[in-house]
Design a protein around this nucleic acid. Sequence first.
DNA 1: TCATTTTTACTACATTTGTAGAAGATTTTG
DNA 2: CAAAATCTTCTACAAATGTAGTAAAAATGA
Lengths: 140, 140
Amino acid sequence: MYGLPNSLKMLSPAEEQVMLAVWRCTPPATGAAIAKELVHTGWASTTRLTLLTRLEQKGWLQKEKRPGGTVYLPKITLRAYRVYTARERLDTVFDGDLSALLSALLSEHRPGLPQLEAARALLQQQMDAQIEYDWYDPYG
Amino acid sequence: MYGLPNSLKMLSPAEEQVMLAVWRCTPPATGAAIAKELVHTGWASTTRLTLLTRLEQKGWLQKEKRPGGTVYLPKITLRAYRVYTARERLDTVFDGDLSALLSALLSEHRPGLPQLEAARALLQQQMDAQIEYDWYDPYG
DNA sequence: TCATTTTTACTACATTTGTAGAAGATTTTG
DNA sequence: CAAAATCTTCTACAAATGTAGTAAAAATGA
């Protein structure tokens, strides 16, 4: 449901920054809005534009010329990208081991209780669903 | 405690594969053992060696010539790298939001109950520690 | 130990990535 | 609308990355 089209390879770090900036904008993201989201990079405007163009060529964005300025529409949702990148790390570096990943995250970081509680609830919910599934599935 | 030395920038995908292969070996990792861990890549042996050399230059590995063959010693532990890369994704793509990351992981994947239970236990443990900390810390 | 196999060092090169100047097109503003 | 400010396109280029050949060195086997 959330996989990326096969043709989309991994983003380079600079490209990723641009995509994240686009996703941060209220759509449709205008050139100016994206620029604002990228001030922290200190890039020349041409650098930003080069990256936007490359992202369009690679199929991550769709550029649309409108009166008042060009807008850039993500072809991939942030949600899909998150699923993809999280999964990629889990499989590549953590051998698919969810608790190993979690443990790495917690080992340096002290998320607040609400964060932790929310995360735990998610897992609990997943577990409940799983149990129900096992219970009712005739092939389980 | 687990941060990478600042001088170490991110690994490229190919370099990461090599480091993962080295970590998979029982130390000390010999050239042959590493090669075995990388058969799936289909790389020419020179490709592998080029990458090993680059990793040494960049400070990820230490090469040691021994009678019987060179061995490669990781200067960075797998554990440290995992912490680093997990954290990097969390901050960059998930805005530091742990449950967002978790939710991305669960949305496509159906880890088994033991996996989920282990993960939940980890969180629970972290929460307990947190609560205790809040309770006793005079500055909390 | 000498030929055979394996490993390593050095070199090479195409592709991708990071970064931006010059110049033309567009938008904004007085 | 004309001048000023901004945006976009095209072009460029150095550095990093992916990939491997050639030849020298080391290990192995007979």
